[in-house]
Design a protein around this nucleic acid. Structure first.
Lengths: 145, 145
DNA sequence: AAGATTTAAGAGTATTTAGTCGCAAAAGAA
DNA sequence: TTCTTTTGCGACTAAATACTCTTAAATCTT
């Protein structure tokens, strides 16, 4: 069940990594992140640019530069990131991709899908980077390798 | 929120259409279906071939040939179709696409995603073509145009 | 048997997504 | 000022997905 594009997946992983490094002050080097997470440097850079542009990150060039979360990790939710990287209508699309499908003329699967989607959206809405970052520092994954 | 490939979306729409035509006996012409649903004939044909191969449809060549559901519509569930067209591991994948992510070494979002995914899977498991076909005949969509 | 109809199958094309590369711009260090 | 580090940004390449076209095979009709 593929839901997110690679750009979003990479962005998410990197942000979770950032959130898990909350002790470290200052900027985190993109090169280092891409290496640790085994993600293409240039690809990740582009995604970070988007996130910087949308106020999730702040960046700084030059030695000891890099990126940092612009807001506390507990104020950034999955929904925010997904909306920025996948589009604002991410949760509004019809499962069957029917253009006219909506409240007035729902497609056959609309109702059933609406419920399932709602529960996914709810998880995205309440899950913050801080929460996910905690789990990483709990040594429960090799995301940080 | 894109979940399904176009092939699956088209296949689903066509199957729902088929299910809604339960009064009609015999085979339904692929050309007619593709025209009614505004889906590329050749593309749809390939998807139907896959579904025929996997026992969802039966096909017949020659005049008055076409395709028909091989089983009653209330015995075909979304899960079946999705597994055939998207792969058997459709509901088993990690949201972040981490290769090693699983029960033993869950990734940070694994737990939260697991719950959301479970509810989607449940809807897929209990929703049959018959149910969706009913809704179409209820004139609630322009799927049949 | 010959021709028409309709699915099967595979090759070919186009579009989208993913990933790479090179250089410009900002900032610090020597 | 010049060199080094590091992000910004645009162009390019590769791969995956979506779509099209042609021909073969099955079946019916005449």
């Amino acid at each position: 069940m593929k839901v997110l594009s690679k750009a979003t997946i990479y962005g998410l992983r990197a942000l979770v990594y950032l959130a898990s490094k909350k002790d470290r002050t200052g900027y985190l080097n993109i090169g280092e992140i891409s290496e640790k997470l085994n993600i293409s440097f240039h690809f990740l850079t582009k995604t970070f640019q988007t996130l910087t542009l949308h106020g999730i990150l702040e960046s700084y060039r030059g030695p000891n530069g890099g990126i940092a979360l612009k807001k506390p990790a507990d104020q950034i939710f999955l929904t925010d990131i997904v909306h920025i990287l996948e589009g604002a209508d991410f949760f509004d699309k019809c499962l069957l991709g029917l253009p006219g499908c909506g409240v007035e003329a729902p497609c056959p699967v609309h109702d059933f899908w609406k419920d399932a989607k709602k529960s996914v959206k709810h998880e995205f809405d309440i899950t913050s980077l801080a929460e996910l970052g905690e789990k990483v520092s709990d040594e429960r994954m090799r995301l940080v390798s």
